[in-house]
Every structure is written in structure tokens, then in C-alpha cells.
Design a binder for these strands. Sequence first.
DNA 1: ATTCGTTATTCATTTCTGTATATAACGAAT
DNA 2: ATTCGTTATATACAGAAATGAATAACGAAT
Lengths: 115, 115
Amino acid sequence: MSEDTALKLNGKLWIELNGSKLVGPGRVELLERIRDCGSIRQAALQMNMSYRQAWQMIEDMNTRLDAPVVISQRGGKGGGNAVVTEKGEMVIVEFKSFYKKFQQFLSKHSGSINL
Amino acid sequence: MSEDTALKLNGKLWIELNGSKLVGPGRVELLERIRDCGSIRQAALQMNMSYRQAWQMIEDMNTRLDAPVVISQRGGKGGGNAVVTEKGEMVIVEFKSFYKKFQQFLSKHSGSINL
DNA sequence: ATTCGTTATTCATTTCTGTATATAACGAAT
DNA sequence: ATTCGTTATATACAGAAATGAATAACGAAT
């Protein structure tokens, strides 16, 4: 019954394109929030992230994939808006599938650390 | 037959103690090299790492685990030496076991990215 | 034309990480 | 006692990465 909760297995997971990070948990959460509130700024605020960083993440995915994950407009009603595309939805679904399996992997092996 | 080798799943894995990193691939490689050459400095040189960083890694593991992973001596024949303890061997074996499974996880799922 | 809130972009600042450097401590061998 | 290469430790420096602030661009609505 030796339960050592202090020792655990942990890690990070991401999808990379041409050797550098493209999608991780943070970017996926950002996409989900943009989808739900229609604004990059509001999504960033919700995540306590700077707008600058959020915009850079979106811009990075938009330019490196063959189709944009978010289409945004400035000006107009509400000052502007942002919409997650079908490609963006694919990114969300695909990564979350991998990530769930990864978390299962971690918790599956986390109990058997013997140090 | 669309083989998109540019897109791949990647990640990092580590063992953490009380919420902060304790063992990762770099530290394990360091331990293995110390075991093989008997010197923290030489091991660090082999890995193109500063001695300071290598020493800090060892010191961190030594102080946070209930037994040291490396026992070192200064002075004497050769100027000093470093020996990997039984605990250190356990760290190496245990982490490498997890890490191998992790790499299998990555390569297993890496082929099915569809973006 | 003015207002409004957001998108888009730049610049300076700060924070973090690791490096380089220098120095002391050490003990066996000579 | 001197030499030698390593361990151990502190300080200063450099580059990268994240942050914050400031500003321009935009278009619908009034």
C-alpha cells in the first residue's frame, strides 16, 4: 500500500510540421475558445494570455498549414471577429484524440514508478 | 499512398517529484556517461554541456531523492571521480523503460495524422 | 465624420536559461 | 612541497523567449 503520489510520470505532446511545433494543448484550447466566443482577443483574455501571443499562434498555424484554421476580419460590427474554419475544427478534433490517449498512457504508467 | 513525413507527433517525457522535473532523457544520458567514464566533467564534455549544468542536474537528483544517484570525490588519482550508485542505476533503467514505451506510442500514432 | 471594439504590428522591457569564466578545495602521486 | 585533473561554487555575461505597452488599420453603425 505504498502510494507515492509525489512521484509521477508527466510529459508534453504536440504535432510538429517540418521539425517545429505546430499544434499543442494551448493552441487547441485557444481554437476552441475562439470558436466559442468569436474573438481572438476575448479568447486570449479568458486564457490569461496576451493578445499578441494568441495572434502569433493563429498566424503561425494559418500560414504553415495548407488552409487557415481561423479567418478573421477587422472593423465592422463589434470591431471585428474571428471564425474557426473546418480545418481548424479538424485540428481540434485530431489533437484532442491524440492527447486523450497520451493522458491515458501517462496515468497508466504513472503508478508504477519505483524510486 | 500519401505519406506526409513532414507532419509528425512528438513530445517529451519526464518523471517529476513534487511537481517539478526530476528525471528526463538528458539526465539519464548524463548518468549513463558518468557510469561509463567515471567523471562528471568528461560526461558533460561528451554531451557538449557545461560542467555547471551537469553538476547541478546531479546535485538536484542527489538531494531530492532519498539516496544519491552519483557519489563523487575530489582530489586524488586523476583529480577525482564520480560513481553512479545503485539508485542511479535504478533511475536509468526505470526511465528508459518508460521512454521506450513512449517512443513506441509516438511512432504508433505518428502515421495517422490527417491535416 | 465620429465612435467603437477588434484585428494587426512594432518596439522596448523584462524574465529566463544557459554559458563562460574564474577560483577554491581536494588528495594521490611524484 | 609541487603537480595534476577533477569536484565544487560564485559571479558576470549573452542570447532567447515571453511580456507589456503603444499605435495603426479597419468597417459597420450612428
